[in-house]
Structure formats: C-alpha cells, structure tokens
Nucleic acid binder design. Structure first.
Lengths: 215, 215
DNA sequence: AAATGTGAAGTTGTTCACAGCT
DNA sequence: AGCTGTGAACAACTTCACATTT
C-alpha cells in the first residue's frame, strides 16, 4: 500500500479504503465479463478480490443497492455503476511531468488507456533530450503547460521528476488548475486543501516488505 | 495508497501503517542530516513528514524510547534505529521478473540503491529480447531463477510481468523461497500465508484520484 | 433456499490530556 | 520551561448476526 495522499475529506461517512476496493472489484468484474459470466454472488466476487463477502456488500451499500437477494449481482450493471462512480465513464485526460526512465515507462504503459485514462501530453525541462525516448505522446517544455491543460480540460497529473524538483512542479500544476496529483517523487508535497495527492514510493514499499519478512 | 498486501500479521499490536510512516520519517531524517541538523523535535519532524506530532511519538514508542524529554531526538541515532528496524542496515538483494517497459525503468531507478536495496538480477521469458533494453543488471531466463536466488540469498522480488503471467511467476518465486513480493501486475496474487505481497497498481491510483476530484 | 442489506458489536488505529524527565 | 512518553478517550473501519427479499 503506498501511503495514501493528503487533503480533502468530503463525501464523508465513506471509508477511504472502500474507494480503493471499488477499483479492485471493477478489475475482477472485467475479468468475469471476459469469461462470459453475467451474474456473480458477493461470495464469489469477494473471493476473487481477496476480501470478505460482508465487506464487499458493505462497500456497495455506501452507494446504493445493486444486487438481487437470492440471486447476486449483474456483472455488467455493477461494473458500470462503479465506473460512473469513479468518474472514468468518459476518457479522463492526464498530463505527465518528468520524462526520465520512469516517466517514459509510464507513458508507454498500456494499462492506463484500458482503464479510462489518456496521457494527452508529457512535459520535461529538456524536451529535446526527452524526445529521444520515443514515446507516442508529444513532449513539451513547461512553458506549454497552462495552454495544454486548458485545451484538454485536464484535471489530473503524474509527477515523475527527481525529488528536488517535485515541489516546484507541484506548484506549477496547482497554478494551472490541476486538482489531482499522482506523485512518484519521494517527498511530501505541500499543496492546498482542495488538491488531492496520492503518493507512490517504490523504496518505501520495499522497506515495508523488508520489515515484514524478517524472521 | 495502494491497497496493501496480503498475509502475515505477526508482531501484532503494531499498526501496519506505522511501518510505512517509519519509512517516511527516515526520509525526512536523511534530509535533515544533509542540512547538518543534529537534533529534532517530534513537532518539527512530524511537520516534515506531514503527520501529527502525537502520531509520530506513538509510532516510535511501539519500538522503544528514543528521545530526550525537553530536548527532542538525535537525528543520526533515530535514523539508524529505523534502518535497523526495517532490516535495511545491510544491502538487501532483490530480483526482478519481467523486463518490459516498466521493468526496465525499475532496473534503471537509482532510488533503490540509495535506500539499501540492490536488484542483483533480472529475469524474462525472452532474455535475448530483453537485453536490448540495455540495463546494467544481467538478464536471465526463468530457468536460472533458483540458482541465482540461492547464490545471493535473495528473499524479495519485484513482479513486473503482464497480468496473465503474474500468478505463475509468483508460484515460481514462492517455490525458490522468496518471502516478499512487490507486485505491479493488476491481479490479486494467491500465495501462502508466510509470503508477504505488496501491490502497486497504477490504474487504481488514478481511479482513486478521479473519484476524489469530482466536484 | 439462497443471497443481499444493514444496525449493532467488535476491532483497529488515532488523538487527547497530562504525567514524567531533563 | 520544554518536550517526550503513554494510558485513556475517541474515531474509523470491519465483521457479525440476522432481518429481508426473490
């Protein structure tokens, strides 16, 4: 688990972790659908997601009633409701800042598109150099940030610059109206309350494993 | 946050999240040290880490008493105790399976070394193809896994293969004695209880942001 | 009979209030 | 006086038990 972001506690009553599990359920539902399965019980779906059936049901009731007693849930319908809820029903535009090794890998990652996100553009201090990495998205200098964010109505950004530059980049992003940041830099970003930050820190994940595997 | 791994609840009473925060504190302590600061109060350190001072103090008391009342904590000493606790005092060997875009990026990531991890070797179904990516670590076929894991006494592994292959790779890793897995594939891995899995799912992180930024 | 939905109980994690050192 | 350490209160989340619907 990545240590979860900062800020914004609106839509209270609903546990933060429940939202994560929604994503998890969605992935399992996709797989069920691929296998031609149309109906699923909370027991079966929970097992696929690695949670307890009661937790799955409780998670869903935060948002309404979607099952039929004695029968289970309709795969398609439940998937669609989660998609609507997460706000990924329409393709969400995202920008990425920092086209180093990791940034370039993220730009090539097919998983985003599949889940309803499109990295519309990347930015780097040295765009010429970064362009050598041959990714399909256009790479701009930071001077183009405002223009492109506005043009595509972008609200989310990925930060994959070195630690020292991350806060400055975050400031720039906030300035042009970004409200959701996925941060790969190993620093605690300071942002206004209305901006949401999720951190992914690879070294921290390994350290965490390291602790738990000690005999 | 990434939805945190499975299995293993030993060393009870200590909250899982407290271990993550230890990593966070360590990072902040490193920065303080770089700035030549020798002593820090729970207030200051907590602020740097983005947590409440009482939480920091409580987290530390799970492991002992490290501060001096009226004075604060000694930066060096506290950092060392966290390093010892996390088990990264000596360089930890790690293997990586799946040298695609993401895998290659992880192999080139400098952050691991700095935090006490060394990716000693990488594995891929098609090692010849993968070697074109020009990373500094040797790339082997899966047939060499057991040999190298034993030779370096490796206990931790990173999975960066496509979703369909992840479970099979996990089985192989468990078989050769790996007990900690950092999994980037978007699937819920089934492993024995004594094996710890931490999941990093990039699409899930974006979906989570997407939910929270909806006005 | 089978499976969902949910208030209530239980568990885990966080914060408070203040006692205790230096 | 300043700041840590910690039991007790509080809040958040999970699980249970069972009423309810098909």
């Amino acid at each position: 688990m990545v240590l979860k972001g900062s800020s914004k506690t609106q839509r209270a009553e609903i546990p933060r972790k429940a939202i994560y599990r929604l994503s998890l359920y969605l992935r399992c539902l996709h797989r069920l659908k691929d296998n031609g399965i149309q109906t699923v019980s909370s027991d079966a779906l929970a097992q696929a997601a690695g949670v307890k059936p009661t937790q799955l049901r409780k998670d869903l009731t935060y948002f309404g009633q979607f099952g039929r007693r004695g029968l289970g849930y309709e795969v398609d319908q439940l998937a669609q409701m989660i998609i609507d809820l997460l706000g990924t029903a329409s393709l969400q535009p995202v920008v990425l800042v920092g086209v180093g090794n990791l940034g370039a890998a993220l730009l090539s990652y097919k998983g985003f598109d599949k889940e309803g996100f499109e990295i519309v553009s990347a930015f780097d201090q040295l765009p010429e150099l970064a362009r050598k990495k041959k990714v399909r998205q256009p790479i701009h200098g930071m001077d183009k940030l405002a223009e492109i964010v506005e043009k595509h109505a972008v609200k989310m950004a990925i930060i994959s610059v070195p630690a020292e530059e991350a806060q400055e980049v975050a400031n720039d992003l906030v300035e042009v109206g970004i409200t959701g940041i996925l941060n790969f830099a190993p620093v605690v970003l300071q942002v206004p309350d209305e901006v949401m930050v999720n951190n992914v820190n690879l070294a921290m994940e390994l350290e965490n494993l390291s602790y738990f595997i000690q005999s």
